[in-house]
Design a protein around this nucleic acid. Sequence first.
DNA 1: ATCCACCCCGTACCATACTACAGAGTCAAG
DNA 2: CTTGACTCTGTAGTATGGTACGGGGTGGAT
Lengths: 151, 151
Amino acid sequence: MVEGGPVNTVTMTIGQVARKAGIGVETVRFYEREGLLEEPERRASGYRQYGEEAVRRLRFIRRAKELGFTLREVAELLALRHDPGATRTDVRERVRAKVEDIEAKVRDLQMIRAVLLSLGETCQGHGPATDCPILEAIDRDDGVEATPPDA
Amino acid sequence: MVEGGPVNTVTMTIGQVARKAGIGVETVRFYEREGLLEEPERRASGYRQYGEEAVRRLRFIRRAKELGFTLREVAELLALRHDPGATRTDVRERVRAKVEDIEAKVRDLQMIRAVLLSLGETCQGHGPATDCPILEAIDRDDGVEATPPDA
DNA sequence: ATCCACCCCGTACCATACTACAGAGTCAAG
DNA sequence: CTTGACTCTGTAGTATGGTACGGGGTGGAT
């Protein structure tokens, strides 16, 4: 934002900015390579120079990741933030989609949980595991869940 | 189980066993490399020969994966199944631990969902995204969630 | 005999999000 | 001016769960 002359912006090294943002130095460089963080100014020596904006951006990345956004999605959010043509509707749409992702994941997990709990009830006692009904059931049981809990 | 002589066990090629189990040929070899599937007999040509037991085992793997077990955990379950010293309690313990994993994941996801929903309410209207409260909030908001929703 | 689908092995590659390392140069304090 | 902490680049490795490929041999049907 503020450019075109020497400002009182205190500059930081990559180590300082990383510490302030609560991430590792290597990670800062990684985000730069991945296009999440714009390439900073350099000193004559080649050392990267950062201002406070970089700390905010890195914290944003960290927080958005905590909220379940992938780095690709974080990049989109960051792009929205800096795109004058982007509307709040665009932002809400991203958030809504992520909420739906989360709800789908929760539903899947709860279905899986239900299956596991019901399996647990079929396997009482202390006998040998070799003929434990759980293992038999996993064998035969089919398609309570269509997709594995990844994605 | 049945060994020591020529039995009426129809043998299958890797392609046939893969098709029956609903996975890919490469995946079968992958599971073998990873120790989930024991190395099968070979024909003189080197072709792998499988019986029905292999199909059951592969389906077990597939199903356990759908239930959220990692390949490592699946290997443990398979080991239990073939270990005469293993008890049903051992099996139940695995299932209980997985249920707890799942419940923890669900709690995390629901916390994240709540944060996202509350963010969504702060960003009404159709203005530009550049100053959308969601993005501001992600900036400042701290630590509703300690760990990202991976693991 | 020929054909084509199938199988063999080993290795490399996909995505995700980092993390580590080697070998060299730099900055600042004492 | 030396020392030690820090930074640079580029590459490689981690974990997870596979998928793809190249270059060759095999099986069974025609």
